[in-house]
């Protein structure tokens, strides 16, 4: 199961990288979203995948680690907020600058 997860995470990172290297702002945002999904799955995998045991220390038998899920929830909330903000910003930038092409947004020609 860990192998499958590793491959899934790898594919997510790969797609995210591909999307983030494109010029369109919207694709970049989708890319960052995928990147954080990959990171969340990675946490889940790194906390050992286990089924059927309670997240309680001191009970008899094996226990599941509840911490990765708490971490993922926090990370999801944060990435939700950041993505939402990014979308608003991209929309404003599109309205103001008239393009969603990163290349065309460049300004700031250095030492003038």
């Amino acid at each position: 199961m860990e192998i499958v997860m590793a491959i899934v995470v790898g594919i997510l990172f790969m797609t995210a990288t591909y999307l983030m290297l494109s010029k369109s702002l919207l694709r970049i945002i989708v890319g960052t979203g995928l990147l954080s999904h990959g990171a969340h799955l990675l946490i889940l995998t790194m906390g050992r995948l286990k089924r059927g045991s309670a997240p309680l220390l001191g009970e008899k038998g094996p226990y599941t680690d509840p911490l990765p899920q708490a971490l993922i929830l926090t990370a999801i909330v944060i990435s939700f907020g950041v993505t939402a903000f990014f979308l608003v910003l991209a929309y404003r930038a599109y309205k103001e600058l008239g393009t969603d092409n990163i290349e065309k947004m460049r300004g700031n020609r250095g030492n003038e």
């Binding site: 907020g81 939402a84 903000f85 979308l87 608003v88 929309y91 309205k95």
Partner: peptide, 13 residues
Amino acid sequence: GVTMTIIQTIGED
């Protein structure tokens, strides 16, 4: 509050 603020900001104009 936050979600609706975000959606309204995009939706308003």
